[in-house]
Design a protein around this nucleic acid. Structure first.
Length: 135
DNA sequence: GCCCTGACGTGAA
DNA sequence: ATTCACGCCAGGG
């Protein structure tokens, strides 16, 4: 029963609760999760909870990233690939092991909309690579 | 207890 | 953009 663990490690259960509440298609940083769990500056504890959490816990662990939007696992590692795969499956674009938090950030994504970033279309959108491509 | 480690964060250089 | 040093603190030895 979870209640048992909740009594022994309230912090852990609070953290798991927050992680469970991250909406699909969104991501949150370790620090953000900690803060929402009422444990400011306890990012490392969040990491520990995730590491100890058995798959049976059914936590959307893959929605938790580093503050800079990068996957915490070493690039190319088993966990790294799995996380990237899960995120992609939810429509979260992962480029170079990194996610654009301004777009997929849990609450931050709303800000992005509210800030209404003037849709700037630069000519570089074409991303020409070689002058001789076009002659 | 003391020491080291870690799915982290942040400010400074 | 990168690297470094520190801060943080639960667990394991």
């Amino acid at each position: 029963m979870k209640s048992v663990d909740a009594k022994l490690k309230p912090d852990h259960s609070a953290i798991r609760r927050v992680i469970r509440s991250i909406p699909p298609g969104c991501v949150a940083s370790y620090g953000e999760v900690a803060e929402r769990a009422g444990l400011p500056r306890r990012a490392r504890l969040v990491a520990r909870v995730l590491r100890e959490a058995p798959p049976s816990a059914g936590l959307p662990w893959y929605r938790v990233l580093r503050a800079n939007g990068r996957i915490a696992f070493p690039a190319g590692s088993r966990g790294f690939r799995e996380q990237a795969r899960h995120l992609a499956a939810e429509g979260v674009l992962v480029v170079g092991g990194r996610v654009d938090v301004a777009v997929h950030g849990w609450d931050r994504n709303l800000d992005a909309v509210l800030w209404a970033p003037a849709p700037r279309r630069k000519k570089t959108t074409i991303t020409r690579r070689s002058p001789r491509t076009r002659g």
